[in-house]
Design a protein around this nucleic acid. Structure first.
Lengths: 138, 138
DNA sequence: CCGAATCCAACTAGATACTG
DNA sequence: CAGTATCTAGTTGGATTCGG
């Protein structure tokens, strides 16, 4: 009864959310959260974007592209993405060692959602900056 | 020359990323990052999803829906979203006080991207869980 | 009922130094 | 080159208390 939304497209959205966030696992917590927590952290999405951009990168190339990531955090992030099957690591038995990273097919499918989000931010950044300055004038 | 991707759709993706992440502001850092850092934190996307789901919610209703968020974090998150113009706060001068929150038009537009991301996670969660167990067997 | 303020524990991430 | 290990500063977030 509390439903007082515009009611034209309201129900479809609710159904989607309801469906996605249903707590179906044994812990009573929806499994989507665990995934979003991993890919939603500060460095994961930048790593995915840059890997998607270049296709295949060595450790230090990737580090240089992202710019302000520390060696430690890049290692940690890459391991996490590798564990989730989003990134593939290729090790070449050479001296000096060479290691290349690239997105898996799963990673590529996520890349598209990441780009969508980045495009959203890009499209509305002016509006957000405006809102922030409006907010600070209180 | 380092471009050795599938080359069918490779360039469009690169162009998109290039365009979005160009460092055009005076700080030499792309403005998209600042926005994604804000909306990509642990509680913002949950807050947006639940507000999108219900349309309009009082503070404690929202808190109950999210479940495991503390009062402090919900307050902090809502202020941040309000500052960015994603959430609107309605205060009713009553006793006891009543405060309602709902997404702005800007927030609604972000909601769709959030749902897309959640749907991605929902669609591929089995594959990710599989990858994780495969990874742990090393 | 809504939320501000303070305190404190836990986690995060950078700097640095070292290794195969 | 591509990491690992350790240490520490900074940040986050929960618990609690108080106020309008």
């Amino acid at each position: 009864m509390t439903v007082t939304i515009v009611d034209s497209q309201a129900t479809p959205v609710q159904e989607k959310i309801e469906k996605i966030f249903s707590k179906t696992d044994d812990l009573g917590v929806c499994p989507v959260r665990g995934i979003l927590d991993r890919i939603g952290d500060k460095w994961s999405y930048l790593t995915i974007i840059h890997l998607g951009n270049s296709g295949k990168l060595r450790f230090n190339e990737l580090k240089a592209q992202i710019g302000d990531i520390s060696q430690r955090m890049l290692t940690v992030t890459l391991r996490s993405l590798e564990e989730d099957g989003l990134v593939q690591r290729h090790i070449y038995a050479e001296v000096p060692p060479r290691v290349e990273y690239q997105l898996t097919a799963l990673g590529e499918s996520l890349l598209q959602r990441m780009i969508d989000l980045a495009e959203w931010a890009n499209m509305y950044k002016a509006e957000i900056v405006k809102a922030r300055s409006r907010y600070s004038k209180n």
